[in-house]
Computed example of a mutant assay.
Amino acid sequence: MSYMKEPKGSKYDRDPSASSPLSAAISAQDRDTLAMVASALKDRRMRLAFQPVVYAADPTLIGFFEGFIRLLNLRDQVIPARDFMAAVEQRQLGREIDCAALQLGLMTMQRNPQIRVSINMSARSVGYRPWLEILTRALAETPRLGASLILEINEDSALQVPDVLKPFMAEMREKGIVFALDDFGAGMTSLKLLREMDFEIAKIDGSLVKNVDRLQDAKSAARAAIAMAQELGMYVVAEAVETEGEANWLREAGVGCLQGYLFGPPTVTPDFRAFRHGRPNFGG
C-alpha cells in the first residue's frame, strides 16, 4: 500500500479566506471524508482485506498474505483509500489507521497460527506510542507471531527517517520480524541508506510491472530494479501482476514471489486453508 505525501504549500497551509471557490469546495470535501474516516475508526467499522502473495515458481503455493485496511461508512460500504490516504498522511488519523491495521493483522494471525502476514506501516508508526504498544503487547503475549509477521514500509517513508527506523528494525529482527521495502524502484533510491537498513524483501512497484513482457522500456526498468534489489541481498516480490505474460517474464527475470489480481484480489473472506507451510527464504 502506498502512502502519498502531501505537497508543501497545500491547501491546508493557506488562509481559508484567500482560497478560491474550487479550493474551498475541495477542502469541504476533504473535511467530510476525514469526518467519515474518524467515525469509522471510532466505531471500529473496519476490516482487513488479504491478498495472496504466491511463489513465482509455483503460483499454487502462497508465501504470505498482505493485509490492506478497509474502512466502512455508515452503510457498510468501503471508503476508497484513494479518497483519504493523502489527506490523513500527516495527521493523527493516519497514525490511528496504522494502529487499526496492525491490530487487525495480529488478531488474524493469533486466530490462524499457520499463516504468514504482511502489514503496512509508515515511519511515523515507530515514534507513535499506541502503535508500538500494540506490537510489543502482542509479541509478549504470543511470541511466535514475530516469526510470521512482515512489516512493509514505503520506500519514500523509509528514506525520510532512517535514523529512527534502523534501531527499531534491529530490535524487531531479534523477535523474528522481517521487513519489506514497498514501492521499490518507484522513486529516488539511496543505495547507501538501503544497504545500512538491510531490508529482507523488495517489493517491485507496480508501475514497473505493467506490460513488462511487451515494452522494452518496462523491461529495462524492471531489470534494473530487480538487479539492484538482488545486489542489496533482498528477496524480490513483484506487485500488481495482472497477466500471464507479466508473470512469466518476472519469473524468468528472477523474481521470487508474485502478487496481483492474476492470483486473487484482496478479500475480507480469505481461505487461509490454502496457505502452505513452505516459506520464501527471506528469514523468520
Results as ranks from 00 to 15, higher is better:
M4V: 07
M4Q: 00
E6K: 00
P7S: 07
P7C: 06
K8P: 03
R14C: 09
P16R: 04
S17E: 05
S17Y: 15
L22N: 13
I26R: 10
S27W: 12
R31M: 14
D32S: 13
D32E: 15
A35E: 15
A35S: 13
M36E: 14
V37Y: 13
A38I: 10
S39P: 00
S39A: 13
R45M: 13
L48G: 11
F50L: 09
V53T: 03
Y55C: 12
A56R: 01
A56I: 01
A57M: 07
D58H: 12
I62V: 10
E66H: 08
L72D: 05
L72G: 08
D76H: 13
Q77H: 03
I79N: 11
A81D: 05
A81G: 00
R82T: 05
F84W: 12
M85K: 11
A86E: 14
A87D: 11
A87C: 02
E89V: 09
Q92E: 14
G94A: 09
R95F: 11
A100L: 09
A100V: 10
A101G: 02
L102D: 10
L104E: 03
G105D: 04
L106E: 06
M107A: 15
M107H: 15
Q110K: 14
R111A: 15
P113I: 06
P113A: 13
Q114M: 07
I115D: 06
I115E: 08
I115W: 01
V117A: 07
N120R: 02
M121D: 02
S125E: 08
V126A: 15
G127H: 10
P130E: 08
W131S: 02
A138K: 13
A140V: 09
A140Y: 12
T142Q: 10
R144S: 15
G146S: 01
A147Y: 15
A147E: 13
L149Q: 03
L149F: 10
I150G: 03
L151P: 04
N154T: 04
D156Y: 11
A158C: 05
V161A: 14
P162L: 07
P162F: 05
P167H: 02
F168N: 03
A170V: 10
E171S: 04
E174S: 04
E174V: 02
F179C: 04
D182N: 11
D183L: 07
F184W: 00
F184S: 02
F184A: 04
A186R: 04
K192W: 03
L194N: 12
D198R: 08
I201C: 01
K203N: 13
D205P: 01
D205S: 10
S207I: 09
L208C: 09
Q216T: 07
K219P: 00
S220Q: 12
A221T: 00
A224V: 06
A225N: 12
A227D: 08
M228A: 06
M228D: 05
A229M: 11
E231K: 02
M234Y: 04
M234I: 06
M234Q: 10
A238E: 06
A238N: 01
E239F: 03
A240G: 08
E242Q: 08
E246F: 09
E246Q: 11
W249Q: 03
E252I: 07
G254L: 05
V255I: 01
G256R: 07
G256K: 04
Q259C: 06
G260E: 01
G260L: 00
F263I: 00
F263C: 05
R273P: 12
A274L: 14
F275L: 07
R279N: 14
P280H: 01
F282L: 10
G284V: 00
